[in-house]
């Protein structure tokens, strides 16, 4: 196995956990609720990034995966009174199985076509949830009154942060192995990866399964936090773009980047609310994302390392090293 854990990286992870765990002692409940939203967005963004950020297969249908996890858990729990200990794992499993069955043929197509097919999946499930068995899905109104896992902002903060932390750390460790290298290499030149004797379809399927697993976890847990689901919000183009933009402006093809992007976007949208209460907020965040992506396409995470290296007096090439596929990401 590659040397994944260095003292520095472990210390940074511990520091991150300690700082985040201290926040409930310092901040109000409103702040914590924004954090919870950000943590769930970070889970979705990391899930998107494992597939799209690494392999370059841009998925426009991620709410489709989140939706399967959300609906499956909600239906099992709310309609069939299944205990959460069973409904959540089954919801996650449903995401992986359902997503694979529908997405598998799409992995053989590329680029724009892949993006369009995945977008079609999102629209497909949106329509299906309204038409097929509305007695189960709640039709256009969705489902409300879903059982909570825990109550209170502080408990939910720790639960959602714990989930995000475990997912982020696991993905970070996984992507520091040669598997991470191979997935990134697919994003750079898939034909050349094939030319190295590697079955890229198998790798993409694995990336997809991991992506679906993470999306399923996010979807299954979030529906028990919010207590309701509405198809119009879940399969909304704004939700889709928020996931993608969070991954991109934070730093695609990294693990830290989508978390930074999710926190940045959620807080930006929330703090814009007093001045721009309507959906015009998305216009402002769109401009921010556009400017950032035009001038710093590698995202906020790369900017952070540039600043750190500037303070240390290193040159630009060392920044490239620090963000290379074996670096701390």
């Amino acid at each position: 196995m590659e040397k994944i854990f260095t003292t520095r990286s472990i210390l940074l992870w511990i520091l991150f956990a300690v700082v985040m765990c201290a926040i409930p002692f310092l901040a109000g409940k409103g702040f914590l609720r924004i954090c919870i939203q950000a943590f769930f967005l970070a889970i979705y963004a990391m899930s998107w990034d494992v597939l799209s950020g690494r392999t370059g297969y841009v998925s426009f249908g991620h709410p489709f995966l989140v939706g399967i996890g959300t609906y499956a858990t909600a239906i099992l729990s709310y309609r069939f009174d299944m205990p959460l200990i069973a409904s959540i794992p089954l919801g996650i499993l449903a995401t992986m199985i359902g997503g694979t069955i529908l997405f598998l043929p799409a992995l053989r197509i590329k680029e724009t076509y892949f993006a369009l097919v995945t977008l079609a999946f999102m629209e497909l499930i949106y329509q299906l949830t309204q038409v097929v068995r509305p007695d189960l899905t709640g039709g256009t109104r969705g489902i409300s009154g879903i059982e909570s896992i825990t109550t209170g902002a502080i408990n939910n903060y720790y639960l959602s942060f714990g989930l995000m932390f475990i997912i982020a750390f696991s993905l970070w460790a996984l992507m520091r192995t040669r598997l991470g290298n191979a997935l990134s290499a697919i994003g750079m030149n898939e034909e050349a990866v094939k030319g190295c004797g590697i079955n890229t379809t198998k790798l993409k399927l694995f990336a997809f399964l991991v992506s679906a697993l993470v999306a399923g976890i996010g979807g299954a847990f979030s529906v028990h936090y919010f207590g309701s689901l509405a198809p119009r919000n879940l399969f909304d183009i704004n939700f889709l773009f928020t996931i993608i933009v969070a991954a991109l402006i934070g730093g695609s093809s990294t693990i830290i980047g989508p978390m930074i992007g999710a926190l940045f976007l959620t807080f930006l949208l929330e703090y814009l609310r007093p001045w721009v209460p309507g959906t015009e907020r998305f216009f402002i965040y769109g401009i921010v994302a556009l400017l950032l992506y035009m001038y710093r396409p590698s995202g906020i995470y790369a900017i952070f390392w540039e600043v750190v290296d500037k303070f240390k007096g290193k040159n630009a090439s060392s920044i490239k090293d620090s963000t290379s596929i074996q670096g701390v990401k």
Binding site: N181, A185, M188, A192, V193, C196, I198, S324, I325
Partner: peptide, 17 residues
């Protein structure tokens, strides 16, 4: 057909995978 974001050793590493 190199992997543009990988260095020489990392490019070779992909071949050895």
């Amino acid at each position: 057909r190199p992997f543009n974001e990988l260095n020489v050793l990392e490019n070779i590493r992909v071949g050895m995978m």
